[in-house]
Every structure is written in structure tokens, then in C-alpha cells.
Design a protein around this nucleic acid. Structure first.
Lengths: 194, 194
DNA sequence: GTCTATAGTAAGATAGAC
DNA sequence: GTCTATCTTACTATAGAC
């Protein structure tokens, strides 16, 4: 992990935190400057195009990290084991930092430029392709493997949004472990059916 | 469907549209007034507590409608048929209106009051309970039935967010039909395992 | 109920001194 | 590089006439 101690980086980090907490439009240049301990003018020195340039820097530096989900999954020896492994990682990945990232990107997406959207897309595609590679080890039909991979991604993503960002975990007893168990029991059955 | 032609209702509808398009903080009272064709002062006559009161009115009147997802599902005669039925409804429910609603609620949730959050929660719980009733027709273990129901909800929700709101549908060929197929093949297998 | 007019505040952005 | 000072614009909200 880099140190990020020079002013430009401090500005990006402060902006990222505020954008994710309050949203892009709700956050003012002044607020970011206060947080960093400098003036608005100093901020405009580092980001000549103002707030929009700051948003782009945040999108580049603070994209949600998905790769941790796949850690250690190469060791799995069946689709069932693979899902259990991903489930364990998911429990760790479902945390404030990561899910605030997702919620924020989802919220700002409609107002992003084509380039900004493309950056978001490539991050997700990259992850799904790595996941698909793992699934393909156990599913010969590669089209089916990709469908299974995307189903897993949808379920995991939906779980994070509903139970963490919408705080359904406070009302309903349904954990990442439960989701994983259902998926681990269910998905391997698909292989034998085709 | 009610007519919603009096000024107060026109204001709420205009506010809802703008909030969902731009976000709450990014939308100004002035913009809403312009859209309706009145002045800001008129708006403050109807909503004495200003912008925040408007937000609450929008949350009450424009909650996303989930019930359409369950339409006709009482006719299903197996878990497989139930999932197929829901999948068909899902294809119709995955539209701009509905998903903009979800994205917006997700985005504003952290800034909602306790009462506002409770309103969001009860909508979701209500839906899940009706879904669980349907699933329980085919799954004796009611704890397992609820896990299956929530897994379906997570997958459906995640699909809507990823493929519609994040526009992954423009890059990846994975349709509501694909998701439904995988779930319909996979989930019934869980029953035989317990 | 709806208007005009305006108060008071905060926003994004820049010029120029150091 | 960072500051002070300032411009312009937009915002929420209210008072008072009609």
C-alpha cells in the first residue's frame, strides 16, 4: 500500500471519503479543502478543471476492489468447494469500505461520462472473467460456466446491497454464510442437468 | 391509477422525477418549481418544511413496486415452475422506472431518517414474506424456504443493479432469462439435499 | 393559493501577492 | 505551492401584496 502523503494524494483521499459519504453533488470544494487543511485555491492548483477533475481522480484511485473475492480459490477441487471458498472471502469483502464504494458508484453512474463508465465496466468485467476461469475448471460447457459465474456475481452483489447498504441485516437473519450454503448446494446441480 | 392533477401532487411527481434523475441534493427547489410551472414560494406553501418535506412525500408516494414480481405465481405447481414464473415477471419488472427507483433509494438511504429507513425496510420485508409463502408450498423446512427466497431476491436485485443500472447488459450477454434458467435448474436441487 | 421581491448563505472558480 | 480576497452565480427560505 502506498503512503499517499503528498498534498495531491491527500486531496484525492479526502474527496473520496466525502463523495462516498455524501455524494458528489452534495460535497463542496470548500469542504474538501477544509478536511485537507488547505484553501480552495490550493485545490484548484492541483486540479485545474475543478470538481470534475477531482471526481475522475477518485474514480481512478478508489475503485472498489473485487479481486480479494477470488483469493485462494485456485485450490478448490470442485464447484462446491469453489463456492464455499468464495463465500468465505465474501464475508470479509462485505464491509463498509467496499460497499460504500459500490453504492456510490451506482449512485453516480447515471451522471458519469462515457470514459468514466467504461472504467467502471472494465473493473467488473475483469473480475467476472477471472471468476469464469475458475468456474470453467468444473463446468465443461463454457457458456454455461459463464452463466453460473454471473449468477454468483448477481447474488453476491445483491446480497451486499440489500443486507449491508439497505441494512436488511438488522431485520432479517440471512448471512453471507446462508447465501453461500444455498448457492453451494444449488449450483453444482446445474452441471449434471446439461 | 389516480389522476394526480392537483398542484400538490404535481409537485411531488415532478420532485420524484428530478430526485431520481439527479439525486436529492443535486435537485434544487427552483428546478422543481420550474418543472411544475409555479414559483418557489408556491412550493413552500404546500410543503412548509421545504425540501426535506418534499423528500418524505416522494418516499411515501413513489416507493418501488415489487408486487408485480409475484403475479400469477399461485398457479405454479413446483419450485421449478415458481422460479420460471417469477423470471418472466422479472423481465418485465427490469425497466427504467423500477430500477431508477431502487438506485435512488440505495443512494439516498445513508442520509435518510430512521422513519424513512423503516418505510423502505417494510416494503422489502412485505415482498419477501409473500415470496416465502410461495416457496414454502414446495419446501417443507420453512427456514430453508426463507433462505431460498432470500437467495432469489438477492440474485434478482443484483441482476437489476449490475445489468440495468450499471449497464452491463451493453457489454455482456446475460439476460433475465439466463438468470432464471440457472436458478430454476439449481434451486430445486437444494430441497432433495436436506 | 400564487405571485414579486429580497434576505441571507454557500457554492464554484479565479486573480494576484508571497 | 499556497495564501487572501473577491467575483459571480445559485441556493433555501420568507415577507407581504394580490
Amino acid at each position: 500500500m502506498s503512503e499517499r502523503t503528498n498534498r495531491r494524494e491527500l486531496i484525492v483521499d479526502a474527496a473520496a471519503a466525502l463523495f462516498k459519504e455524501q455524494g458528489y453533488t452534495a460535497t463542496s470544494i470548500r469542504q474538501i479543502a477544509d478536511q485537507v487543511g488547505c484553501t480552495e485555491a490550493a485545490l484548484y492548483y492541483h486540479f485545474k478543471d475543478g470538481k470534475r477533475a477531482l471526481l475522475q481522480a477518485v474514480l481512478e484511485d478508489h475503485a472498489p476492489s473485487l479481486m480479494a473475492i477470488l483469493q485462494g480459490c485456485e485450490a478448490a477441487e470442485s464447484l462446491h468447494e469453489l463456492i464455499i471458498c468464495i463465500g468465505k472471502n465474501l464475508s470479509r469483502a462485505v464491509n463498509k469500505e467496499n460497499l460504500d464504494n459500490f453504492r456510490w458508484i451506482l449512485a453516480e453512474f447515471p451522471r458519469m461520462s462515457a470514459e468514466e463508465r467504461a472504467a467502471v465496466h472494465s473493473k467488473h468485467l475483469e473480475f467476472e472473467q477471472l471468476l469464469a476461469v475458475q468456474v470453467e475448471r468444473f463446468v465443461e460447457d463454457s457458456a454455461l460456466a459463464r452463466k453460473i459465474a454471473w449468477t454468483m456475481v448477481c447474488a453476491g452483489f445483491g446480497f451486499g446491497q440489500l443486507f449491508f447498504n439497505l441494512e436488511m441485516d438488522k431485520l432479517v437473519d440471512f448471512t453471507p454464510k446462508d447465501l453461500t450454503e444455498v448457492m453451494a448446494m444449488a449450483l453444482p446441480a446445474v452441471i449434471n442437468m446439461c
